[in-house]
Simulated scan of single mutants.
Amino acid sequence: MTNAVRNPAIILVEDEPDILIILHRIMRDLTGGYDIVTVNSAQDALGVLTERSCPLLITDHNMPGMTGTQLTQVVKQDYVDTKVIIITAYATPEVERTARTAGVDYFLTKPFSLDRLEQIIKEVLGKV
């Protein structure tokens, strides 16, 4: 049995189902040629990373179990080629500082501009 070649994946990590659906729709329209994988926990995201090439991971910050910053630390240690965007409605200078220290590539505060998200995605995926 032969394994099918898979497109690289973009992982969306969000514990709120409605927001995850919206993010998926946005990403689907912006990222032709990439599989969009949605998960509702950092642990699930790490599972996907062990199986797939993932140039981009977009994660909420406040989630049960592991925060977006903690996820970023693991990703930057174990998957150095994966870019990370943290989105949060609870941005404080300390949260942003901690995320930057963890190695986050982009930090977006909700509500964020879809134009800004699109610009970041194009930069990360080399479509500028």
Score class of each variant (00 low, 15 high):
86 I>Q: 11
70 Q>L: 11
44 D>G: 06
4 A>M: 05
42 A>V: 11
45 A>P: 08
62 N>V: 15
56 L>I: 10
6 R>P: 00
74 V>Y: 06
80 V>H: 12
48 V>G: 01
30 L>V: 00
53 S>C: 07
60 D>A: 06
34 Y>M: 02
95 V>N: 02
47 G>T: 06
62 N>C: 13
95 V>W: 00
108 L>K: 03
73 Q>P: 03
128 V>C: 04
115 D>K: 10
57 L>Q: 09
124 V>S: 08
111 P>C: 08
85 I>D: 13
10 I>K: 11
72 T>V: 02
99 A>F: 06
22 I>L: 14
28 R>D: 14
33 G>W: 01
85 I>K: 09
51 E>Q: 14
9 A>C: 11
25 R>H: 11
79 Y>V: 08
67 T>A: 07
41 S>V: 06
60 D>E: 11
5 V>Q: 09
6 R>K: 10
120 I>H: 12
116 R>D: 15
111 P>G: 09
109 T>L: 04
85 I>A: 10
92 T>W: 00
10 I>F: 10
76 K>I: 04
48 V>Q: 13
24 H>T: 14
101 T>G: 03
9 A>W: 03
69 T>W: 04
115 D>N: 11
109 T>E: 13
63 M>S: 00
17 P>W: 12
70 Q>F: 05
113 S>Q: 03
64 P>L: 10
90 Y>L: 12
15 D>A: 09
49 L>Y: 07
92 T>V: 00
25 R>A: 12
29 D>S: 15
125 L>H: 11
102 A>D: 05
96 E>D: 01
37 V>A: 06
116 R>T: 15
45 A>R: 08
28 R>E: 13
67 T>Q: 11
68 G>E: 06
